[in-house]
Simulated scan of single mutants.
Amino acid sequence: MIEQIEGLPAGTLGFRARGQVTSQDYERVIVPDVEAAFALNRKLRLLYHVGDDFTGFDPGAMWDDAKLGFRHFTGWDRVALVTDLPWLRMTATAMGFAVPAEFRLFGNAELDAAKRWIAEPRPVDGD
């Protein structure tokens, strides 16, 4: 299941993965929210929390995630992934260079820090 994370600033989307995540979760929650947000914003920020109650992604969900990422490949400003799952942390670390956005990885205990980071203004060049 995918849930929205509320209380984030404008231009920032937040999602929490719980239990088993399916392609229907992407099609029902993430895709409409992302498409609507990109209709209003050229660049978006994303906070994605995969907590201890997460059990896995269905193959269709992983495919939907990849398609959505590629469709808006250059539209991400900042991406924060919050998880303690070793396989997901390793994958994110290995593939983080390919994300054309400022990317940071946080542990579950750092969720509040991730929310602060995703909301803070980018430094102006020369600062």
Score class of each variant (00 low, 15 high):
4 Q>T: 15
64 D>V: 05
126 G>S: 15
80 A>I: 14
36 A>R: 12
98 A>D: 01
67 K>S: 12
66 A>G: 03
64 D>R: 12
111 L>S: 01
65 D>N: 14
54 F>V: 01
68 L>W: 10
22 T>R: 11
32 P>W: 03
43 K>E: 03
76 W>T: 01
31 V>H: 06
85 L>N: 15
61 A>Y: 02
65 D>Q: 09
106 F>S: 04
92 A>T: 05
19 G>Y: 11
82 V>Q: 07
57 F>I: 01
109 A>Y: 01
112 D>G: 01
118 I>F: 06
89 R>W: 13
78 R>Y: 13
115 K>M: 13
12 T>D: 08
9 P>L: 15
45 R>A: 02
52 D>T: 08
51 G>M: 06
63 W>R: 13
12 T>S: 12
40 L>H: 07
61 A>P: 10
15 F>C: 04
97 F>V: 02
57 F>S: 04
11 G>K: 07
123 P>D: 12
109 A>G: 06
37 A>R: 00
30 I>M: 12
78 R>E: 09
121 P>F: 11
67 K>W: 11
16 R>S: 10
123 P>T: 14
40 L>Q: 10
98 A>E: 00
54 F>P: 06
66 A>P: 04
45 R>L: 01
18 R>M: 09
111 L>Y: 05
48 Y>I: 10
99 V>A: 00
12 T>G: 08
22 T>N: 10
47 L>V: 11
87 W>H: 14
55 T>R: 09
98 A>Y: 08
110 E>C: 03
70 F>K: 13
37 A>E: 04
94 A>T: 04
98 A>K: 03
44 L>T: 02
31 V>N: 03
25 D>T: 07
24 Q>T: 11
32 P>T: 01
31 V>R: 04
82 V>F: 15
87 W>I: 14
127 D>K: 12
127 D>Y: 09
63 W>K: 11
28 R>L: 02
36 A>D: 11
109 A>H: 04
76 W>Q: 08
38 F>G: 05
6 E>K: 15
48 Y>R: 07
40 L>M: 09
28 R>M: 07
72 H>S: 01
105 L>M: 10
9 P>I: 15
117 W>H: 04
83 T>H: 15
26 Y>F: 12
8 L>Q: 07
62 M>S: 06
5 I>A: 11
84 D>F: 15
72 H>C: 01
24 Q>P: 02
34 V>N: 03
82 V>M: 12
108 N>D: 08
115 K>L: 05
35 E>Q: 09
117 W>L: 07
96 G>C: 03
42 R>P: 02
107 G>Y: 09
118 I>N: 04
62 M>P: 04
78 R>D: 09
24 Q>E: 13
57 F>M: 06
66 A>H: 04
92 A>N: 03
41 N>H: 11
110 E>K: 05
5 I>V: 15
89 R>I: 09
115 K>W: 07
43 K>C: 02
70 F>W: 14
105 L>F: 07
70 F>N: 10
6 E>W: 14
17 A>Q: 05
103 F>I: 00
49 H>E: 11
30 I>G: 02
44 L>K: 06
72 H>R: 02
92 A>E: 03
79 V>H: 07
